[in-house]
Simulated scan of single mutants.
Amino acid sequence: MILPDATLGVLGGGQLGRMFTLAAHAMGYRVAVLDPDPHSPAGMLADQHIAADYRDHAALQMLGDECAAVTTEFENVPAESLDFLARHCPVRPGAEAVRIAQDRIAEKSFVRDHDLATAPFVAVYEAGDIEQGFSELEPPMLLKTARLGYDGKGQMEVNTLDEALAAFGQFGNPPCVLEERVELAAEVSVILARGLDGETAVYPVGENHHVGGILDTTLVPARIRQETADEAVDMAARLADGLGYCGVMAVEFFITAQGALLINEIAPRPHNSGHYTLDASLTSQFEQQVRCLCGLPPGDSLLLSPVVMVNLLGDLWADRAPRWERLFRQPQAKLHLYGKRHARPGRKMGHFNVLAPDLDQAIGIAERIRAEL
Rank of each mutant, 00 (worst) to 15 (best):
R92A: 06
M156I: 13
D115V: 02
A371E: 14
L63T: 14
Y245W: 13
A95E: 03
S40V: 02
A371V: 10
G198V: 09
H275S: 06
E372D: 15
E265Q: 12
D216F: 02
A186I: 04
P270V: 09
R55I: 06
H342G: 07
A119N: 07
K153T: 14
G259T: 06
R326A: 11
A366V: 08
F253P: 04
G206Y: 00
E187H: 05
V111W: 07
L148P: 05
G28W: 09
G299V: 09
S284G: 00
S284R: 01
Q258I: 07
I365Y: 14
L313M: 13
L293M: 07
E265W: 04
R326M: 09
A343H: 03
M44S: 10
F352E: 00
A164V: 03
S135L: 14
M1S: 02
V202D: 08
T218Q: 05
T256F: 02
T218A: 04
K334G: 01
R194Q: 15
A123N: 11
R30K: 15
Q288D: 12
P357R: 01
P306C: 15
E75H: 09
G364P: 00
E126I: 00
P297M: 11
M349S: 09
A222N: 02
L282Y: 10
E180F: 12
E126L: 01
R370C: 06
G346R: 08
G133S: 03
G314W: 06
M156N: 12
T21E: 04
R291C: 09
F74Y: 11
Q132H: 14
A240V: 13
